[in-house]
Design a protein around this nucleic acid. Structure first.
Lengths: 208, 208
DNA sequence: GACATATGTCACCTGTCGGTGATATAAGCA
DNA sequence: TGCTTATATCACCGACAGGTGACATATGTC
C-alpha cells in the first residue's frame, strides 16, 4: 500500500483514480472508521490537498467512489444468472432462487456489507448512493417478476421481509458466529436458514 | 446540559452515577460516534480523570453502564405482559404475540437500536453485554414456550428469521422512511409488516 | 526561449483525542 | 485542633483530525 517516493504521476485522471481506489481499499481494510482525509491520502500515497482540489473534499471523493463499484447485485444476479430461465419458473421457485442468490450476492461483497452496516449509523454520500441503487434495483426486479397479484398475498412485503432477514443475518455474520442459536459461521448453518426460508415459501405460496 | 460551576459533589457513588448516566444521554444524543472520554466527562460536568479513577477507563465505564439498563425486552415483555395467558395460547397466536411485542419493545428503545446498529460495526464492552443478555434471554424464552417439536418445522430458525427481519426493519426506520417499497415511517406501514408476518405464521404453523 | 497553468509537495493552523502527574480541597478521625 | 485520605480540578503531553496558504516543479503554448 501507499506509494514509495517515486516521481509523482502528474496526471489528474490517474491520480484521481488512485484516490478513488484508495477509498475502496481503506474501507475494506479498516472499515468506515478509518475513512478520513488524512488516511485516504496516506493510503493513496498522495497529498491530501488533492482531495480538496479534485473532489472538493471527502464527501465528493466518496460520491465519486460510489459511482464506480457494483455495490449491489444486478437484476441478473438476483435472478440466478439466467433471466429467461428464471422468468419461466413457477412463483415459489422464483422466490427460492432469489433468496439463495441474494445470500450469495451479499456473501461475496464484503464492501457492500460494510456499507450496509454503515448506513444504519450515519447517512452519507456513499450510503445514500447505495440506498438509491438498491431501491431502484429492487423495484425493477420486483415489477419484472413478481408484479401480478397472487391470491391476496402481499408479495412485496413478503419478499422484503425475507430480504431484511437475510441482510441482517449476513451482516451479523461478520461479527458473531451464533445468533439466537443459529450458526452463522458455517455452510451447514446457512443451509438451515435457506431451508426455513424455502419452507416458508412453499407453505405461503399457493401452488398453481 | 453539563453541570454548571457549582461546588463539586464529593461523593463517589453520586459522581459515578452521573458519569454512567452521561454515557446514556450522550449515546442517545450523538450516537456512539460522540462517545469518548472527553465528551462523556464534558456531558457529566466532571473531570475526565475520574473516568480512569473510578472505572479504569472508558471501557469500564461502558461496562458499568451496560449493567444498569434494561436494554433488552424481558421474557415477560416478549410474551405480551401476561405469562400465564401467553402460555395458554396456541402456537400460532404465541408467535404472533411475540412478533407484535418484539416490534413494540424495540420501537420504544432508541438506545437499544443504536447499540444494535453499533454492534454491526465494532464489537465492544457495551455491545458484548447486549449480545450476552440477548442470547440468554432469547434462549430462555424459546425453551420456555417453543420447546416442543412441531411437525418437523424448524421453529427456532423460523423465530430467529422473523426476529432478524423485524430487527433490521426497526433499526432501518431510524434512518430511512421507505425500504423496498415498505413504509417504515407510519403505523400503516407497520400494520402491513405485521400482517405479512401473521400471514406467514398462519400458513406455516400446522393448526392443532 | 519565456511564460502561464496544471499538478503536486510542504509547512502550518486550530481543534480534539486519550491519557497522566501535580495540586487543591473537603470529609473523617484522633 | 491537626492529620490522613478520598474526592475532584487543573495543566499539560503527544498524536492525529480536518483544513488552508505558500511554494516547487513539470507540461504545454506561443
Amino acid at each position: 500500500m501507499a506509494a514509495k517516493k517515486q516521481p509523482p504521476v502528474r496526471d489528474r485522471q490517474i491520480t484521481s483514480r488512485i484516490l478513488i481506489s484508495a477509498v475502496g481499499s481503506l474501507l475494506a481494510k479498516k472499515g468506515f472508521k478509518g475513512l478520513g482525509v488524512n488516511a485516504v491520502a496516506r493510503e493513496a500515497g498522495v497529498d491530501k490537498v488533492l482531495i480538496y482540489r479534485y473532489f472538493d473534499g471527502l464527501p465528493g471523493l466518496i460520491a465519486a467512489f460510489a459511482q464506480q463499484e457494483d455495490f449491489w447485485p444486478s437484476t441478473l444476479e438476483m435472478a440466478g444468472g439466467d433471466l429467461a430461465r428464471f422468468s419461466g419458473l413457477p412463483l415459489d421457485e422464483k422466490l427460492s432462487m432469489f433468496a439463495a442468490s441474494f445470500i450469495q450476492a451479499l456473501k461475496k461483497r464484503p464492501l457492500t456489507r460494510a456499507i450496509m452496516a454503515w448506513e444504519m449509523i450515519e447517512p452519507n454520500e456513499l450510503t445514500e448512493e447505495l440506498e438509491r441503487v438498491r431501491e431502484e434495483s429492487i423495484m425493477t426486479f420486483f415489477q419484472m417478476f413478481f408484479a401480478k397479484d397472487h391470491a391476496g398475498i402481499d408479495l412485496q412485503a413478503l419478499v422484503m421481509l425475507v430480504g431484511a432477514a437475510l441482510s441482517y443475518l449476513v451482516i451479523r455474520s461478520d461479527n458473531i458466529d451464533v445468533y439466537g442459536g443459529l450458526d452463522l459461521a458455517t455452510d451447514q448453518g446457512w443451509e438451515r436458514i435457506s431451508s426455513v426460508v424455502n419452507m416458508v415459501i412453499q407453505r405461503v405460496i399457493p401452488q398453481e
